[in-house]
């Protein structure tokens, strides 16, 4: 299995506080990798190092390497805007722009000048909405406000917005934690569908969700990677006692 993202000896500090300790991990191409662990274990921080979202925090300091397709994303000559186009992100709370459904998806295509004419732009918007399994629900109301959509639809709109700029990796930070079971199921089905084309990394507190959608699971605790294994192995017979205790709810 070819590696899409290769992380070695990654350390991360918020000021004097070390949030990640010496993380080394390979993320295979076109697979879903889930990060699990208790609150504050560093999994979201780690996710955000993969498209340099932590750059916006002035006291943050990263050392170690993160290679995507063999290129060091922390190299001085990295185009961070291009990186974030390639490594899209979906957050816990859906955050559509205060615009129409169409404009939400078209936004990234427009600012990156990724279209030739109006018809081509419309095609791209439609494709992104189809890929996010939203098209049939919104095709007749593309020009209405995105805020009129349900929570689950808004989240899929955010996924469509991420897909519109043709990323290769999608990072998801608890994408379904604010959704009801039906909307959650749609997002999970979408994740499984999307992995045919994209490499997906998902942070989740819902262990059943990690078990359902991911190929590999990484368990973090106190900023350290405790175990990284095939999901099937992780949930039936983990190698580490700590992992077993966490996934069976034995933590005091």
């Amino acid at each position: 299995m070819q590696s899409k993202i290769s992380i070695s000896n990654l350390n991360f500090h918020y000021g004097k506080e070390q949030a990640l300790h010496d993380i080394t991990l390979e993320i295979p191409e076109r697979q879903v990798v889930a990060f699990i662990g208790p609150s504050g274990c560093g999994k979201s921080t780690f996710l955000r190092t993969l498209n340099r979202m932590n750059d916006t925090i002035p006291i943050a300091k990263v050392d170690g390497t993160v290679l995507i397709d063999g290129n060091d994303i922390y190299a001085p000559n990295t185009d961070v805007v291009a990186l974030r186009r390639k490594v899209g992100m979906v957050f816990q709370k859906s955050n559509p722009f205060p615009k129409s459904i169409f404009e939400n998806v078209a936004y990234g295509i427009r600012i990156n000048q990724m279209y030739e004419n109006k018809a081509n732009l419309e095609q791209k918007v439609e494709k992104a909405l189809r890929d996010s399994a939203l098209w049939n629900e919104v095709k007749d109301r593309l020009n209405t406000s995105a805020f009129g959509l349900s929570g689950g639809q808004q989240q899929r709109l955010c996924i469509a917005r991420a897909l519109a700029v043709q990323p290769e990796v999608i990072l998801m930070d608890e994408p379904a934690s604010a959704l009801d079971p039906i909307a959650t199921q749609k997002i999970e089905e979408l994740i499984v569908e999307l992995k045919k084309q994209y490499t997906i990394v998902i942070v989740t507190h819902n262990m059943q969700q990690a078990a359902r959608v991911s190929d590999r699971t990484a368990f973090f605790m106190l900023g350290k990677l405790v175990e990284y294994n095939a999901t099937q192995k992780m949930f039936t017979n983990p190698d580490e006692k700590l992992t077993e205790d966490y996934i069976t709810g034995r933590f005091g």
């Binding site: 262990m207 059943q208 949930f235 039936t236 017979n237 983990p238 077993e244 069976t248």
Partner: peptide, 9 residues
């Protein structure tokens, strides 16, 4: 209870 790991086994 949705047991996992040893509990599941």
């Amino acid at each position: 209870q949705q047991p996992a790991a040893h509990d599941l086994r």
